[in-house]
Design a binder for these strands. Structure first.
Length: 493
RNA sequence: GGCACUAUCGUCUAAUGGUCAGGACGGGUGACUUUCAAUCACCUAAUUGGAGUUCGAUUCUCCAUAGUGCUACCA
């Protein structure tokens, strides 16, 4: 159990889109911080200028905001431990690297990438495990410093012990031991002067007083290296938590580029930035991802507040999880049904207006309860409610023909319904339903047939919210007009 | 290839050295019903395999198998 206030961080690199995995890492960090009254920090790891993607940082921040789990400290909100972008901290790292060199825990290396690549190929050809061959490892420090001052290109490598092994503890998996020879003399500072992840993250975590490192399991095999770096400095280790990875829906491997594209065509996406446009709610998405890697015994529908109450960092599961979009749909629909009418109406509105509809607020407030339990995503409202806001509808004439009847019989029913409805003082649910039901009974037909014709005539679609409530909102004038148009269409068939 | 991690219904998971192995999604059936939903009830389905420890293992140990990750001057 973790009770003391923690300082945790989410440290993405702006090299691509913000996806499910990052969002879950952020969520767990946020929950642990919230749970213990600690701080959640966002740090941008932009030390790889080659892979930098403009706009990626904005997408990270927007996604976090949209999900409702913004950081307490970060490039936007600042904080006492800034700056929170690693390129803005570049002068910090070299100093620490040289401190390691002086301690004999690291060394400058002048090997060219070309030579290293050649060595690697040779090692591979000999079926050896590729590793740094140690050329500069034993270099005299004064000689090396001289070459550095002379302007020769160099990197700084960690001097990994040649013997023994390193054991480090992961909160979910216990002690993990790796032979030091497997860790290699990793580069700490690149020839462009910027640190690699291994160096930058350890220094920043120390400087920012991070107490718990919650990150993806891709770091599991390098984490004894990280522990070695920390020990070389003589710093205190954080608690390590390595999260499982997400697999594609069939559970076989991670999602490929093509599969990601296909998911979007299907109305799904693993990118948080897409989810809003696809009609998903932050509540639904959060509930979905929080349960991929964490389990509760029962009542798995939760708001963020309820997650905060129940979350426990040491109950996470270390095994990989397959993405299940059906579950996203389920949670999204469930949370939509939990929303108040006002809230739901406000959330639906942009989708409706985005579809080119004019949406008076009072009408929307009446429509919302009718479509609420039919929505899986917010943009489903377009399919379910457009006809309320259109001047006219264009039903497919074929759809107007009731099951077991022909066009002329159907036209007669439309005319008869028109007669009944037009004789009423108003077309409200209460006033209109009894005479129509009476008509159904006397006609010898079933409600399905008659109401089906009226439904298609009035809404323009075969599937709609309840008929009489819908007609009440549409209004007498439009209902009669649409009914008469439909009868006309049928008569022409 | 080497190293590491992981392994409960199709999927996400709960639990335990002795349970009818629980919940959720999905699927199925029924109720409700003017369509579609929603809702309710019921059903379906799991401890990867093999050794060992133990009176007893799904749970602990080992091996195998499979999946995943790492094996860069990427993170």
């Amino acid at each position: 159990m973790v009770n003391n206030p923690v300082r945790v961080r989410m440290a993405p690199s702006p090299t691509g889109r913000f996806h499910l995995g990052s969002a879950r890492t952020a969520l767990y960090n946020y929950l642990l911080a919230g749970k213990t009254g600690g701080q959640f920090i966002l740090r941008i790891e932009d030390t790889d200028q080659k892979r930098y993607v403009p706009g990626a940082e904005e997408e990270i921040i927007q996604s976090l905001n949209w999900l409702g789990i913004p950081p307490d400290e970060g490039p936007l909100q600042g904080g006492h431990f800034g700056p929170y972008r690693q390129t803005e901290r570049r002068e910090i790292y070299g100093k620490y690297a040289w401190e390691l060199v002086e301690k004999g825990a690291a060394f400058p290396c002048f090997c060219t990438p070309e030579r290293l690549e050649k060595v690697r190929q040779e090692q591979l050809a000999r079926k050896e495990n590729p590793r740094y061959d140690g050329t500069c490892r034993g270099l005299d420090l004064t000689e090396a410093s001289g070459r550095v001052s002379a302007g020769e290109k160099y990197v700084i490598r960690f001097k990994m012990p040649k013997e023994g092994s390193t054991t480090a503890v992961d909160l979910l998996r216990g002690p993990i031991t790796i032979d030091n020879t497997a860790l290699d003399d990793s580069v700490l500072i690149k020839s462009d002067g910027l640190p690699t992840y291994h160096m930058a993250a350890m220094i920043d975590d120390h400087l920012m007083e991070i107490s718990h490192v919650i990150r993806g399991s891709e770091w599991l095999s390098t984490f004894p290296l990280h522990v070695n770096i920390i020990r070389a400095f003589g710093w205190e280790e954080p608690v390590w938590v390595h999260l499982s990875v997400f697999l594609k829906p069939d559970g076989k491997g991670k999602m490929s580029k093509r599969e990601k594209a296909e998911a979007i065509k299907d109305g799904h996406s693993i990118f948080i930035g897409d989810l809003k446009n696809l009609g998903y709610t932050p509540e639904g998405v959060l509930n979905w991802i929080v349960l991929m890697g964490w389990g509760v015994a029962e009542d798995d529908v939760m708001t963020l507040d309820q997650m905060l109450e129940r979350f426990s960092i040491d109950n996470l599961t270390p095994s990989p999880a397959a993405i299940n979009f059906q579950k996203l749909d389920h949670f999204n629909g469930t949370h939509i049904r939990l929303l108040t009418t006002e809230d739901l109406a406000a959330r639906i509105k942009p989708y409706l207006t985005g579809a080119g509809l004019e949406v008076p607020h009072e009408t929307l407030l009446k429509v919302t309860p009718l479509i609420r339990e039919r929505l899986v995503t917010l943009d489903d409202s377009i399919a379910f409610a457009s006809f309320f806001f259109k001047a006219t509808v264009e039903p497919n004439p074929e759809d107007l023909i009731a099951k077991g009847l022909d066009a002329q019989q159907s036209a007669l029913i439309a005319r008869k319904s028109y007669g009944i409805l037009s004789s009423l003082p108003e077309i409200s649910h209460q006033v209109a339903e009894p005479p129509m039901r009476e008509y159904v009974e006397k006609s010898g037909l079933n409600a399905n047939q008659i109401f089906g014709i009226v439904r298609v005539a009035v809404t323009g679609q075969k599937v709609s919210p309840p008929l009489f409530e819908s007609m009440e909102i549409i209004g007498r004038e439009k209902v009669l007009e649409r009914l008469s148009n439909a009868a006309g269409l049928l008569e022409k068939l």
